[in-house]
Design a protein around this nucleic acid. Structure first.
Lengths: 99, 99
DNA sequence: AAATTATGTCAGATTTTCTAACATAAAGAG
DNA sequence: CTCTTTATGTTAGAAAATCTGACATAATTT
């Protein structure tokens, strides 16, 4: 896994990086917008990509978009990325285009 | 600054990523091998590149190399990288080779 | 023999994080 | 226009993480 997706950042640092309050960060998790990992003892760990998503969320929220809508959008773009991969995989499998 | 160099990882997580004890991690700082940042309240923050360096240190230590030697080596390779950049900068300035 | 290196461990203080609850303004739904 | 939900703040107490400083010690170096 890349540095971008490794879950190593604790919530206080995410707060500094995003400007979002701890409350907000936890709430967006509750609403299914982000999925931090937990250490064995229960403390949350975020990745840089989580931070990026949170910044997007902050923008959307400023525009007045509700978390429910934001979640749908996020899932849509996530699905988009999966589809991309699948297509690329298909292409590679059939035509061995890479490398 | 890239994700690789951003100081966002706390010492407990560094311990998990490297297998080094907290004591060791702090000691290597004391010996000038790594330079975590500090939050206003004093807790240490490391980057992924710090983690990489710590893994190198762990290898060297297993070979019995002392921290003093390791530090010199690290500074040497750091200097090497600076030189590289300078040279590349020179080249670019004079010949505009990029892009 | 004496000093240094590299760790472990302990103790107490401080900081960070967690959950759960209560409060509330603003927005949405019927 | 009431009722509910959304999105946040705040508070409180507990638990987890981190900090410094000290003492101990085996292994090396000097």
């Amino acid at each position: 896994m890349s540095y971008k997706h490794k879950k190593v950042i604790s919530i206080g640092t995410v707060n500094e990086l995003t400007g979002l309050s701890l409350r907000q960060i936890r709430y967006y998790e509750e609403r299914g917008l982000i999925y931090p990992e937990r250490t064995k003892r229960g403390t949350r760990k975020y990745s840089f990509s989580d931070v990026e998503i949170l910044l997007q969320i902050a923008d959307k929220r400023e525009e007045g978009v509700q978390t429910y809508e934001i979640r749908k959008d996020l899932q849509k773009t996530k699905k988009g990325k999966v589809m991309e991969r699948m297509l690329r995989g298909q292409l590679n499998a059939h035509f061995k285009m890479n490398k």
